[in-house]
């Protein structure tokens, strides 16, 4: 007797570029610093609350280090994407995860976006929007060339579909 496992979502087929790991790491370092630097300045300026602030700094530093080390690698395992003949399928997140599916026939626009950090690592973010106000799918950290070809392919497919996709 083979016990059948309960139904679940399988991960999408393709990973994002592994250059997304250093990109996410830099982002994580930046966000930890925005907390740590003001704390550090306050520590240098006020004597009266030194002990209290010092412990806060240590806590932020420890949690921040864990975040910087763990988050990018965890994200890299989760962030995946797939385009079939019928639909786009993405997964994203780390602690909280999200899977999104949109049929090709319902796609309205396909955008790419490259922030300064992403350009540094040769990455792009592809955003696929549907007619829903809450339905945009995002693939972050795709290789720049791959993203370009993906957008071309999706645009060609969705232009062939009639209707206003509502």
């Amino acid at each position: 007797m083979q016990r059948s496992e309960p139904l679940r979502l399988r991960p999408p087929r393709h990973q994002v570029s592994d250059r997304a790991i250093p990109w996410w790491t830099l982002q994580a370092v930046a966000s930890v610093l925005t907390v740590l630097v003001p704390l550090g300045i306050a520590l240098a300026m006020w004597d009266s609350v030194r002990a209290w602030l010092g412990w806060s700094c240590v806590a932020v530093l420890l949690l921040g280090t864990v975040y910087v080390v763990v988050m990018p690698r965890w994200r890299f395992r989760v962030h995946r994407w797939e385009v079939t003949d019928e639909a786009v399928y993405t997964s994203a997140g780390w602690l909280s995860q999200e899977w999104r599916v949109a049929p090709l026939s319902r796609i309205q626009t396909i955008d790419t976006e490259r922030g300064p950090l992403q350009q540094l690592f040769g990455l792009s973010t592809v955003t696929v929007t549907t007619a829903s106000a809450a339905g945009a799918l995002q693939v972050t950290g795709l290789d720049r060339r791959l993203a370009r070809d993906l957008v071309e392919q999706l645009t060609a497919t969705t232009q062939a579909t009639p209707g206003d996709a509502t």
Binding site: L9, Q97, E98, W99, R100, P103, R106, S132, G135, T166
Partner: peptide, 8 residues
């Protein structure tokens, strides 16, 4: 016109 499945 699509699904969003989320899990904390």
């Amino acid at each position: 016109i699509g699904w969003t499945v989320s899990q904390s």
